[in-house]
């Protein structure tokens, strides 16, 4: 766990989680992130949105970036700031993300006729999170950085 620096300022706190590239383990990160988000004061529906977006991002990392190689890891970083939670998911990038994957999702009509029902993950992440950015991780893999803003309770 020495690959990430911890130069967090006084108002930033970082939780790191390393998972095996195996479907099902996204649940571990979802539960950890939900616990953190609840503690920060996010409402139940925002916590659910975060869980869903995180599940999609980790599933992409396992299936695409790490190509189901169980020896590879997925790194999830949760950065707590006073007004937002930044969640980044990085894989070890055997397969870089193709620009076509970032384009609009298939239409419902197309999905009825296609054998492959996937392809909605990135669209869903963009719908659920306040900011989404696709970059390259320091390790060279794919990284998705998602931000969810803490709205003040009226």
């Amino acid at each position: 766990m020495a690959d990430v620096s911890h130069n967090a300022g006084p108002v930033e706190r970082v939780v790191e989680l390393h998972l095996p590239s195996r479907l099902g383990y996204e649940k571990v990160a979802m539960d950890a992130a939900a616990s953190l988000a609840r503690r920060m004061g996010f409402s139940a529906d925002r916590v659910d949105a975060l869980r869903t977006a995180l599940a999609e991002a980790i599933t992409n990392a396992i299936e695409h970036g790490n190509a189901h190689d169980a020896q590879m890891r997925v790194l999830v970083m949760l950065t707590v700031r006073p007004s937002e939670l930044v969640v980044s998911v990085a894989d070890q990038g055997r397969k870089p993300l193709m620009p076509a994957h970032l384009s609009p999702p298939p239409t419902i009509e197309e999905s009825f006729t296609r054998g492959d029902k996937g392809g909605w993950g990135i669209w869903l992440i963009r719908e659920l999170m306040d900011e989404v950015e696709f970059t390259t991780a320091p390790s060279g893999g794919n990284q998705v950085r998602m931000v969810i803003h803490l709205e003040k309770q009226s």
């Binding site: 790191e16 989680l17 383990y25 950890a32 503690r39």
Partner: peptide, 20 residues
Amino acid sequence: SSIDLSIPSELGYERVVREA
């Protein structure tokens, strides 16, 4: 199988570990 976690050394963050 294994997972690794790292948290700030602050009271309250143990809950994140507990859930994971």
